[in-house]
């Protein structure tokens, strides 16, 4: 039996998958965001190193702004912790019955790490160091 692929974006959002569905979606979105960010960054660094291109340099200076860093740290920390949860539940599949609890544990670990990161980033931005 095949699944229908003709599902629009908003009807897909109405599917009551709960928190694991949101984690799955965020994992894909953050993964693609990281691929775009790292890919552009490496290509820009290549052209900055080889041709000292102005476009490449301006792309790389965007990455140093504190607003961009707040977004990037969210993307990296979320994707990393979520991947760790997925890998752990795949290695020990008997804990799959506790997958919602695992998600809560993941959020409990995520909150202080990300909170500390944005605290330091905003503190740096405000003091101008």
């Amino acid at each position: 039996m095949g699944l229908s692929r003709r599902v629009g974006f908003f009807s897909g959002l109405r599917y009551h998958g709960g928190s694991p569905m949101w984690a799955w979606m965020l994992h894909r979105v953050t993964g693609l965001a990281m691929l775009t960010f790292v890919g552009l960054h490496v290509i820009a660094s290549f052209f900055m190193q080889q041709t000292a291109s102005d476009l490449a340099t301006s792309i790389n200076t965007v990455y140093e702004s504190w607003i961009f860093q707040i977004v990037v740290t969210f993307v990296v920390i979320f994707h990393g912790l979520n991947g760790l949860r997925i890998a752990a539940l795949d290695i020990w599949p008997q804990f799959q019955v506790y997958q919602r609890e695992a998600l809560w544990l993941q959020l409990l670990i995520f909150a202080p790490i990300y909170g500390l990161t944005i605290f330091i980033l905003i503190q740096h931005a405000l003091t101008g160091s």
Binding site: R28, G31, L32, L35, V38, G39
Partner: peptide, 8 residues
Amino acid sequence: GFNGLRVV
């Protein structure tokens, strides 16, 4: 990353 892109 590129394997993830392929899967998506």
